[in-house]
Lab assay of single mutants.
Amino acid sequence: MFYPNSPQTSPQLTQIPYGQQYAMMQRQIQQPYHPFATTEPQARLYPYHYQGPIQQEQGGFITQQSTAASPQYVQMRVTPVDQSIMSGYPNQTANGSSSSSFNYNIHPQQQQQQQQQQQQLRHHAMPVGSVPLQDDRYRKQLIVNYLAPDVTSTDLHELFSRFGELDGARIIYDKQTNMSKGYGFVYFCHAEDAKEAVERMSGYEFHGKWLKVGYSTNPLNIVPSNSSPYVHAGSRGAAG
């Protein structure tokens, strides 16, 4: 039997160049792979992502010199942007860049009308829970959420009447099932009393439920100042 490094198959040491006398086997001759043993700084910083320098080929596509990437890492192929796409944008300079302001050559009167329309939209648009300043009635009506099913309009009136005089209180019921929808409205005579009720009743436990109280901004629920107070009856038909 002959071994790869046996004296019968191995040459004389004098015939082997210096430095390879003890590297006779194939696994010894093959050098191990060192990912950080390279002179390129990109490979030292990113050993798993770097795959060699990027070269520009004919046709405008950018390719990489090395083989496919590892399945664990996804390499994105980048193509140059066609400058003709950006030619339609206004205020574009000769080098292809555009300024931040756009001039669509709008007539001054049209621009003024658009600004007025935007101001009107901001004036009428009102986020949930906010209180408008032009109508004091919005500051007097509250919406009470997360009410228990057994709470009546009379219970709601008695709960909030300790903060001040009320114009009314009612629970909203479903017309088909005649069941409470879980929320109601309270109408105060003074805005200061309503503000105190919002601050003190939010998070209050009532009939096993934690109440959420806020201003009601729905104009359909506003009680006119010259109208008669609501009837605080315990029956659902009268309260709904």
Rank of each mutant, 00 (worst) to 15 (best):
F2N: 10
T9R: 13
S10F: 04
P11I: 03
P11E: 06
P11H: 07
Q12N: 08
L13H: 09
P17E: 04
P17I: 01
Q20M: 15
Y22N: 15
Y22A: 12
Y22R: 15
Y22D: 08
Y22C: 10
M25N: 12
Q28H: 11
Q28I: 02
Q30M: 02
Q30H: 07
Q31N: 07
P32H: 07
P35V: 04
A37S: 08
T39C: 04
E40I: 10
A43P: 08
P47Q: 13
P47W: 00
Y48H: 15
H49E: 10
H49I: 03
Q51I: 03
P53G: 12
E57Y: 08
G59N: 11
F61G: 13
A68C: 08
S70Q: 09
P71E: 08
Q75K: 15
V78A: 13
V81W: 09
S84G: 10
I85T: 13
M86P: 14
M86V: 09
S87K: 14
S87I: 03
S87V: 03
G88E: 06
Y89E: 05
T93K: 15
A94T: 10
A94Y: 11
A94S: 11
A94P: 09
G96M: 08
S97R: 11
S101T: 11
H107I: 04
Q114S: 08
Q116H: 12
Q116C: 10
Q118E: 10
Q120Y: 10
Q120C: 07
R122E: 03
H123S: 08
A125K: 08
A125T: 12
P127C: 09
G129Q: 06
S130K: 14
V131A: 08
D135C: 07
Y138A: 03
Y138P: 02
Y138K: 06
R139C: 08
R139A: 05
L142E: 00
I143A: 01
I143N: 00
V144L: 02
L147G: 00
A148V: 02
T152S: 08
H157T: 14
E158F: 14
L159T: 04
F160M: 05
F160P: 01
S161Q: 12
S161G: 13
R162D: 03
R162K: 07
F163T: 02
E165V: 13
L166N: 01
A169I: 01
A169K: 02
A169N: 01
R170K: 14
R170Y: 01
R170W: 01
D174W: 09
D174R: 03
N178G: 13
N178H: 13
M179N: 04
M179F: 15
S180C: 03
K181P: 00
G182L: 04
Y183Q: 01
V186E: 01
Y187E: 00
Y187W: 00
F188D: 02
F188Y: 04
H190E: 06
D193Y: 15
A194G: 02
A194C: 03
E196Q: 12
V198M: 09
R200W: 15
G203I: 02
Y204M: 13
Y204H: 10
E205V: 15
E205I: 15
F206E: 00
W210N: 01
W210K: 02
W210F: 03
L211A: 00
K212F: 01
V213W: 01
G214Y: 02
Y215L: 02
Y215K: 01
Y215C: 03
S216M: 01
S216W: 00
T217V: 05
P219A: 01
N221V: 09
I222Y: 06
P224V: 09
N226S: 07
N226M: 08
S227T: 09
S228W: 13
P229L: 10
Y230P: 08
V231F: 14
H232F: 13
G234D: 06
R236N: 05
R236H: 10
G237C: 14
A238V: 05
A239L: 05
G240S: 06
G240W: 13
